[in-house]
C-alpha cells in the first residue's frame, strides 16, 4: 500500500507542478482530480490499517493510544 501511495503521490506532484505552468490543460486537470480521489481513498484505508499517515488532524487516530508517535518514522523503516 505504501508503494502504491508513493506512486500516486509522485504522479500528483508531477501533475501539480505541470499545472502550475499549464493552468488550462484540460486533460491534466482531469487527471489531477482522478488522482486526488484515488489518494483520498487509499489514505483512508492506510490510516485504518497502518496508523495515521498525516499529522495535525489530517488522519484519524484509531485506538486508545497516540498512534502517530508509535509508528516508525520514514528514516527508521
Amino acid at each position: 500500500m505504501l508503494k502504491r501511495m508513493q506512486e500516486l503521490g509522485f504522479v500528483a506532484v508531477e501533475l501539480n507542478l505541470y499545472l502550475d505552468t499549464h493552468p488550462n490543460d484540460a486533460k491534466a486537470l482531469e487527471q489531477y482530480n482522478l488522482i486526488h480521489h484515488e489518494i483520498r481513498q487509499l489514505q483512508m484505508k492506510m490510516d485504518e490499517q497502518c496508523g495515521p499517515s498525516k499529522g495535525f488532524g489530517h488522519s484519524m487516530n484509531v485506538g486508545n493510544t497516540w498512534q502517530w508517535a508509535e509508528q516508525p518514522w520514514p528514516w527508521e523503516m
Binding site: M5, Q6, G9, F10, V13, S53, K54, F56, H58
Partner: peptide
C-alpha cells in the same frame, strides 16, 4: 504545512 509520514521516494 502538513507532515506526511512517508518519503517521496523509498530509501534502501
Amino acid at each position: 504545512w502538513i507532515y506526511e509520514k512517508r518519503l517521496e521516494y523509498p530509501v534502501c
